[in-house]
Amino acid sequence: MNQIVATMAGNVWKIVVSVGEKIEEGQDVVILESMKMEIPIAAEASGVVKEIHVQEGDFVNEGDILLELE
């Protein structure tokens, strides 16, 4: 199992994957918006999206879990 965490504080602008989707290492999964910039968050490993912990519009802190892969 693999967790994808926010690399910085910001708003969740877009979630670009859905539960059950197979994703590749390096693929963007969530786009955060911080300091007026879009910050793509990429998966560090390949896997299937098991659970998404955030919703679009949520505020997250650095280190918060965005989603889990399996």
Partner: peptide, 12 residues
């Protein structure tokens, strides 16, 4: 700017 000098990503 509060940002990474290489990637230009923000650094709050």
């Amino acid at each position: 700017y509060a940002e990474d000098p290489k990637t230009f990503f923000p650094s709050p």
